[in-house]
């Protein structure tokens, strides 16, 4: 598991995960997607610990798609931890959630989320949203080379 990970998808709901993956695939973004099922797994992966302790620490995802309602450690906590770490806070985090609650939106941005996308119920729209996210964060947006920073 040392190949490049471009997108880390944090999603507990397998249905949603499948939908997301399909949407990514439809937009040719699914090649280097890694999916984790809860907050703990997400943090273990990012910080290369627990079940991912053997992972190459230098491999940093270029984008994290983060659901908010997660078992064990919820999305906002995950976001908080990522964004307080001097290295990982450079990774763009797009909150991808069903919640239209304003409190979630505000809290996410306060904690340093880079985007907040509500998952549309309409799958066609969902595909469009995923395409837009991928296009923007992976192709259009310029980001610093985190690997160099780690070294």
């Amino acid at each position: 598991m040392n190949h490049e990970v471009e997108i880390l998808l944090v999603e507990d709901n397998p249905n949603d995960a499948e939908l997301a993956l399909r949407a990514l695939r439809k937009n040719n973004l699914a090649n280097n997607v890694f999916r984790v099922c809860d907050g703990e797994e997400a943090l273990d992966f990012i910080f290369a610990r627990g079940q991912f302790k053997d992972r190459n620490k230098l491999i940093i995802p270029r984008l994290i798609l983060l659901d908010l309602k997660l078992p064990k450690i919820n999305g906002l906590e995950v976001l908080k931890i990522i964004k307080t770490d001097p290295v990982t806070k450079l990774i763009p985090v797009v909150v991808l959630t069903s919640s239209k609650e304003e409190s979630d939106l505000i809290e996410s941005y306060r904690l340093g989320a880079n985007s907040y996308i509500v998952k549309p119920v309409d799958f066609d729209k969902f595909i469009d949203s995923v395409r837009d996210i991928g296009m923007y964060w992976l192709l259009l947006n310029q980001q610093p080379d985190i690997k160099k920073l780690i070294k």
């Binding site: 249905n15 399909r22 959630t97 069903s98 239209k100 998952k119 309409d122």
Partner: peptide, 16 residues
Amino acid sequence: SHDLRAPLRAVDGFSK
């Protein structure tokens, strides 16, 4: 807001 939507999304998505 969170949970009721997920199955809906699934229904819609898998129908698609």
